[in-house]
Design a protein around this nucleic acid. Structure first.
Lengths: 240, 240
DNA sequence: CGACACTTTGACTGTAGTCAATGTAAGTGG
DNA sequence: CCACTTACATTGACTACAGTCAAAGTGTCG
């Protein structure tokens, strides 16, 4: 749980898996060289902190899933964002990050030092525009989730989350491709994490997963591996 | 409830109340003239729709409070954002707005036609930067609210909302100034709206307000007019 | 005055939380 | 190889907080 000293490697942009999907997509080859000079790869094992409260880390996610959390004084916790590759990580234009970033699975990052990155931001306006678009999308997602947290039942919440993961998980290594109406994927989160994302307890999440299984909406290979034979049926349960 | 045909007046930037607080603060006098040419004032009475689903309206809020809502198929509703003067309204870079904007009180807007505004955005990069900072702040607020919706009790939620309004309401005409530890303000929302913002029912909101009154945390002059004799005490109830 | 919109209060219910026990699988060491 | 630990998940019994349904209260306006 405590921050270790993850090893770092120089970035190799020419073979990068997210070269054309991450924020780097807006950079020319020349600009990318500039970027390449300051970028460092970094591995963060499951459960480790990427950026503690206040500290700010800028990075592209190459692999794995990152959770952003907020916590009340008495320990009640809420996940306020889940990030998958090729998402960008880090609260720019702030002295302190208003939340906590933690590796939900083993994570591979391409990290940028704060100063260097902010210099880039000034030099390449296309980059800022791209980050702006990202932020607008994140805001839309956050508000979508507010509807879930404020108004959906436990059953609807769990179904909604499975839908969301079925949609995004293809970008995470080990999972299968969802085609039209079938999906198979590995949950990147424990039951406790699911609960923290859904505003429920882990027992309630477990019960709802059992219910969806009994209703033949999903099948479980093991606790983490899930098959959705009919995404439309799951979508129906999710509400909206 | 249905969209009327609100009257429109040309904007007068030189006497504008939000000239130096809204996004216009980043514009030079010359740039402002350009802006002035396309801006139109618009009044929207309580309860009227400003922008229905999909439609996009760009505007500065001059007076009043705007609620952004999302609704499930069966009618369950959630307010996903509250906007006060001098906030900017409108989802830029999208074909459709993912939510619904409605006047919570009588509202005065300074509105910009979509095309004209997007032209400005291209011509004056400072403007885009300013909107980006706004959006980052909105994202932080949305995530703050996710914590409230996911993890706080009814009592904590109501107290948190009162704190938020005590902080922001000074910008809304009729309310009093909060000094160090005392605040007096007019709630810009009905109990039903409070409930929709807090993910509760209006009955629960009403009961919690009664409880806070009985606990001497707040005083009610009438249903809408509230005095907080000790903001620290309210803050304590709000959790965090 | 009556109509209407909004709010409060009460009695009862139901969903999700709490507390506790049990189950399952992977990994460790004797 | 098997007992033991550890981490995670499921299940059950009970509780409590907020929701639901219904009635009454308050204030404003025509």
């Amino acid at each position: 749980m405590t921050a270790g000293t993850p090893f770092e490697l120089p970035a190799k942009c020419d073979t990068c898996v997210v070269r054309h999907k991450s924020i780097c997509a807006v950079l020319s080859e020349d600009e990318l060289k500039d970027f390449n000079r300051i970028a460092r790869h970094r591995r963060v094992p499951t459960g480790q902190v990427i950026a503690a409260d206040s500290e700010i880390v800028f990075a592209n996610i190459l692999d794995g899933v990152v959770k952003l959390t907020k916590t009340l004084a008495d320990g009640r916790q809420q996940i306020v964002g889940l990030q998958f590759p090729p998402d960008f990580l880090g609260r720019i234009y702030a002295k302190e990050s208003p939340y906590f970033a933690e590796a939900a699975t083993d994570v591979e990052l391409c990290a940028f030092p704060k100063d260097g990155f902010e210099g880039m931001l000034r030099r390449y306006p296309g980059l800022e525009h791209r980050l702006f678009e990202n932020t607008l999308d994140e805001l839309d997602s956050a508000r979508e989730w507010m509807l879930l947290l404020g108004r959906k039942t436990a059953r609807e919440r769990v179904a909604s989350l499975l839908m969301m993961i079925a949609r995004r998980a293809p970008n995470v290594g080990c999972s299968h491709t969802p085609d039209n109406n079938f999906a198979k994927f590995t949950l990147p989160l424990t039951r406790a994490d699911l609960a923290d994302y859904l505003g429920l307890t882990l027992e309630t999440v477990s019960r709802q997963i059992t219910n969806l299984k009994k209703a033949d909406i999903i099948e479980l290979i093991d606790n983490r591996e899930i098959i959705v034979p009919n995404l439309d049926a799951l979508e129906d349960v999710a509400g909206n």
